[in-house]
Measured scan of single mutants.
Amino acid sequence: TTVVVGNKKYTFDNPEAAEKFAKKVAKKLGATVHKTNGTFKVK
């Protein structure tokens, strides 16, 4: 599962961990999490 934050990509074996990370980053940046085909995008 990939999490994309700006131009950085983070890969997780565990989708739950990926989602948690994405939400944490989004909260910090005041952004939102978008899920597309198993990829979480923070923007």
Rank of each mutant, 00 (worst) to 15 (best):
T1M: 08
T1I: 10
T1H: 09
T1D: 05
T1Y: 14
T1F: 13
T1S: 11
T2G: 05
T2H: 13
T2P: 06
T2I: 14
V3N: 00
V3A: 02
V3C: 02
V3M: 01
V4C: 08
V4M: 12
V4F: 13
V4P: 00
V4E: 14
V4Y: 14
V4L: 14
V4S: 07
V5N: 02
V5K: 01
V5H: 03
G6S: 05
G6F: 14
G6I: 07
G6K: 06
G6L: 09
N7D: 08
N7P: 08
N7G: 07
K8P: 00
K8V: 08
K8A: 10
K8G: 05
K8S: 08
K9D: 06
K9P: 05
K9A: 10
K9N: 09
Y10W: 14
Y10F: 12
Y10H: 04
Y10P: 00
Y10D: 00
Y10C: 07
T11K: 13
T11G: 06
F12P: 00
F12Q: 00
F12S: 00
F12M: 03
F12N: 00
F12H: 02
F12K: 01
D13G: 11
D13A: 13
D13V: 11
D13H: 12
D13F: 09
D13E: 11
N14T: 11
N14W: 07
N14R: 08
P15G: 07
P15D: 10
P15L: 10
P15E: 14
P15K: 07
P15N: 08
P15S: 09
P15I: 10
E16D: 11
E16W: 13
E16G: 10
E16T: 13
E16Y: 13
E16L: 12
E16Q: 12
E16I: 14
A17C: 06
A17R: 10
A17K: 12
A18T: 01
A18D: 00
A18E: 00
A18I: 00
A18G: 06
E19N: 05
E19T: 04
E19C: 04
K20T: 11
K20I: 11
K20C: 07
K20L: 11
K20H: 10
K20G: 08
K20A: 13
F21H: 02
F21N: 00
F21M: 03
F21G: 00
F21W: 13
F21E: 01
A22T: 02
A22D: 00
A22S: 04
A22Y: 02
A22C: 04
K23Y: 15
K23H: 15
K23M: 14
K23R: 10
K23N: 15
K23Q: 12
K24D: 12
K24T: 10
K24A: 14
K24M: 14
V25T: 06
V25N: 02
V25H: 03
A26M: 02
A26Q: 02
A26H: 01
A26S: 05
A26P: 01
A26R: 01
K27R: 09
K27D: 11
K27W: 07
K28Y: 07
K28L: 10
L29R: 04
L29H: 06
L29V: 06
L29K: 03
L29Q: 04
L29C: 04
L29P: 02
G30W: 03
G30M: 05
A31M: 14
A31G: 15
A31F: 09
A31Q: 05
A31Y: 08
A31V: 08
A31P: 01
T32Q: 09
T32F: 06
T32P: 04
V33M: 05
V33N: 01
H34K: 07
H34G: 05
H34M: 10
H34V: 15
K35M: 13
K35D: 06
K35F: 15
K35I: 12
K35L: 14
K35A: 08
T36F: 13
T36S: 11
T36I: 15
T36P: 02
T36L: 12
T36G: 09
N37T: 05
N37V: 04
N37P: 07
G38T: 06
T39Q: 15
T39N: 14
T39D: 15
T39F: 12
F40I: 15
F40V: 06
F40E: 03
F40D: 03
F40L: 14
K41F: 15
K41G: 07
K41D: 15
K41I: 15
V42W: 01
V42P: 03
V42N: 02
V42Q: 02
V42Y: 02
V42M: 03
V42E: 03
K43S: 15
K43V: 15
K43A: 14
K43E: 15
